[in-house]
Design a binder for these strands. Structure first.
Length: 499
DNA sequence: CAGTGAGCGAGCTTCCGCTTGACTT
């Protein structure tokens, strides 16, 4: 019997089916040992020696692996293909050796990026050794986090009563929130004006040039300037001087990863990060979606293929690109051990599942399914028109913009939500000719004030952390909880305010 | 005499990242 060790029990079950009777696949349930939460777990004075411990919970979960190892004639370490996964393999091996659970059997390290029969088989046939460089990188990460956190936190207890913890990730996240608050406090709102004109044929144009000079945002700083300009334009007609027509394409967004799922669920469903992850976990365990803690946008070929055939069947050839779309991860430190978050089976449409799933699950699945399908569809095409108009005395120039969806493409299925903004609206402009003259029905000078940057929401903080390479998919939600549990920040109208 | 409160001292907290499941709210 060959013993295969993976991290998650759900994966173990699936892989067991693929590999058959000669193999026994067991789960480590993540890390099996860790630095105990006390002084001296890392000794900087002693070449950074690290003292790991298997706690009683881990020991219970590890027992089946120990028992199986004793009977196995080969050990296959198939933990996740990233830094933490490599270390878990090494820890498993170390503990099995320390317990003398394995003798002289071959030990192989195997990695796969998707849980499909083809990929698992390929991986099993291409074993390698444990990559000690990767393991050491993980140990350095672990030691550093321990040393930073357990050195800084006690300093805080003494110097700042009420504070409870500090760490490589949480303190930086807190700093982001505080910096933003400082920015808001010192923000000075600035007045500016713009002028638009209501024309014949229900056209609205905005003032872009005065005396041949392009207007910048603050070029009309107050009411007096606005009224002066208005007075000079009043009574004049506008002549069409230029018409620009072009087509714009918009491509779909990549399928979800943990951070983007948390953001969209917040925008569209109002879910907090924690709730999103709990619901996603259930969907994953019940086999409806792929793994939910991931920073990879890669999709297994079978996933792409089934999305493409669904698109062709449900929406027709026009919606299907010639070749599959592929996406690349933007985050620099992404490890991409798992593929994107997508439905396990595209044929299970949200309509079918909505009858089987409870409300939260159904709504999250709906997002995931649509995002995946849309990510393989054709771009949306917009017909855009820009019309320049001039006063007869050439004092002022206006522009009217129009945008019409010519082909909805992926938007037929899914459109990403927006954060603090206005949804752009569709605006149809009537056919006009160069030289045509239009009456000005009304001039609208309008006062505006610049606004401070918004406070972070859970979603925008996660996005920022990901950009900066702080925290991991498995920890975004918990870091947010820590900041609140420690009373460092509070949520007001879903925005973080430092205490 | 019983209850109250000031004053003092002892003991405790903590990191990040990988997994669920057993708890409580």
């Amino acid at each position: 019997m060959k013993l295969v060790v993976v991290e998650s029990p759900a994966k173990a079950k699936t892989i067991n089916k693929y590999l058959g009777k000669d193999y026994e696949v067991l789960a480590s349930y993540g890390h099996i040992r860790d630095l105990p939460s006390k002084n001296g777990s890392v000794e900087p004075e002693n070449d950074f020696v690290m003292h790991y411990e298997v706690d009683s919970d881990s020991a219970k979960k590890f027992k089946p692996i120990v028992d199986a190892a004793k009977k196995a004639d080969e050990l296959i370490l198939a933990t996740d293909p990233d830094r933490e996964g490599e270390a878990i393999s090494w820890h498993v091996l170390e503990v099995l050796r320390a317990k003398k659970a394995i003798k002289d059997i071959p030990v192989r390290r195997v990695v796969f990026n998707a849980i499909t029969k083809a990929e698992v088989t390929r991986a099993i046939n291409n074993p390698r050794d444990i990559d000690m460089n990767l393991v050491d990188a993980q140990q350095a990460r672990r030691a550093l986090d321990y040393l930073v956190g357990f050195t800084l936190s006690p300093v805080l207890w003494r110097k700042l009563p009420g504070s409870r913890s500090a760490g490589r990730v949480q303190s930086v996240a807190l700093r982001l929130i505080c910096d933003r608050e400082a920015e808001i406090e010192k923000f000075i709102s600035q007045e500016y004006w713009d002028i638009s004109a209501d024309l014949d044929k229900k056209i609205t144009a905005r003032l872009t040039h005065v005396e041949g000079n392009k207007l910048d945002k603050f070029d009309i700083p107050n009411e007096k300037t606005a009224k002066d300009i208005e007075a000079k334009i009043k009574g004049q007609k506008l002549e069409v001087t230029n018409i620009e027509e072009k087509q714009a394409l918009r491509n779909p967004k990549p399928p979800f990863i943990t951070s983007t799922l948390q953001m969209e669920a917040a925008r569209k469903l109002g879910f907090g990060a924690k709730r999103t992850m709990q619901v996603a976990q259930k969907l994953y365990e019940e086999g409806y979606i792929t793994y939910m803690r991931t920073d990879g946008v890669y999709v297994a070929p079978e996933g792409i293929q089934s999305a493409r055939s669904h698109i062709e069947r449900a929406y027709g050839k026009n919606y299907l690109p010639q070749s599959p779309r592929s996406y690349q991860s933007k985050a620099k430190n992404s490890q991409e051990a798992h593929e994107a978050i997508r439905p396990a089976d595209i044929a299970q449409t949200p309509e079918i599942l909505s009858k089987k799933l409870d409300d939260d699950k159904a709504r999250l699945y709906d997002l995931i399914w649509k995002r995946m399908v849309a990510s393989q569809m054709n771009p949306a095409i917009f017909d855009q028109v820009a019309i320049d108009l001039q006063t007869q005395d050439k004092y002022a120039q206006f522009r009217a913009n129009g945008s019409v969806v010519k082909f909805d493409g992926y938007r037929r299925v899914y459109e990403e939500g927006v954060d603090d903004g206005k949804e752009e609206e569709e605006k149809l402009l009537p056919k006009l000719d160069k030289g045509e003259v239009l009456d000005v029905k009304k001039l609208n000078p309008e006062q505006h004030f610049t606004e401070p940057p918004p406070r972070y929401s859970e979603a925008s903080l996660v996005k920022k952390m990901e950009e900066l390479g702080i925290g991991r998919p498995s920890t975004y939600a918990s870091i947010i909880s820590v900041l609140q549990d420690r009373d460092y920040v509070t949520l007001d109208k879903k925005r973080f305010i430092p205490e």
